[in-house]
Design a binder for these strands. Structure first.
Lengths: 171, 171
DNA sequence: TATTGTTATACTCTATAACTATA
DNA sequence: TATAGTTATAGAGTATAACAATA
């Protein structure tokens, strides 16, 4: 039942691939808006999760995982450090490296983040019954695996910004 | 300790919403790469499709649909016009407006675009059986409808660029 | 006076590439 | 010599706002 477009053509624009991109962008936007309430961007949330999973890694490694150049990672980490969410410890075995860790405050914000993630999941899949929700997850998991997508932070994070309300620094 | 995943394995991050965003970004990237072979960006493809569906609209309307400011639409349309894919006709009833149309060349490129779209659909859903593929489409359609997403061009187009190989015009 | 298309400008974002300190 | 972190700079991409023509 292709409910839309009766203009002959393949009904609703595109099939699953198009819907995937459309819904994915929408979901990413909703998530960005949601965690903006925690004063976090998706990339910042991604770093917190990476540090929760594997503490003590170097900036270079983390920058690679987040898909950003090391030079951009510096001010990125600076802000989270100033906010007391992460901590740069010196790595004693190689003094060139930092070992990044979550602070206690970072851990508790991460807990908020997990709550936000659960609410987000419900919001996005609101239209589905619990069984359908599971079905969808299973299908998507298979697809992600087949495409070699890693379970971690996804690169779509890079381009999503939470419609910032024009808070310019000075001047 | 991360309350993240309890199944031992670091667990795939997130549920359906996360997978949706991840796969959606991946699909959008694949599509951008594919149509880069036609010398089109996703936004350009979007305009061609809009013009095929409803010819003769004004730049302002089209810019709105594509989610770009009118000022940005001007050079955007310029390029497609120079390439002979679209045409600016004067609207006789209101001489402030242009009426944009596809050229014949634009129509035939659109046909190529549809072929690319079909191949893309297969590539993205490769992991699924035909039945599962249909299942997925149905679930996603319901979700898109519930979220009020229109069947047309989606705004995720805005941020996807096809990793351009540094082909600068002249200079 | 409002609106379309256009141009100009200013600003944000980002990557590239130097620089330092360690190895 | 190579690498981690940092800083500086330049370039692309963008929106904002002024402008001319028409309504």
């Amino acid at each position: 039942m292709s409910i839309n477009r009766e203009d002959g053509r393949p009904g609703r624009q595109g099939g699953a691939a198009f819907l995937l991109a459309q819904l994915g962008a929408h979901a990413a936007k909703l998530f960005a808006e949601r965690i903006a309430g925690l004063d976090l961007t998706p990339a910042q949330a991604g770093l917190l999760r990476l540090l929760a999973r594997t503490p003590g890694r170097s900036q270079r490694e983390l920058a690679d995982d987040l898909g950003m150049p090391p030079s951009r990672f510096v001010p990125f980490a600076d802000e989270l450090e100033e906010r007391g969410l992460i901590e740069r410890r010196k790595n004693p075995s190689d003094r060139r490296l930092y070992a990044l860790h979550l602070t206690e405050q970072g851990e508790s914000l991460l807990a908020e983040l997990h709550k936000a993630g659960a609410a987000h999941e419900q919001q996005v899949c609101q239209a589905l019954s619990p069984e359908e929700h599971q079905q969808l997850s299973a299908l998507l998991r298979r697809m992600a695996e087949q495409h070699g997508l890693s379970p971690g932070v996804h690169p779509g994070y890079r381009s999503i910004r939470p419609d910032r309300p024009h808070v310019r620094s000075e001047q």
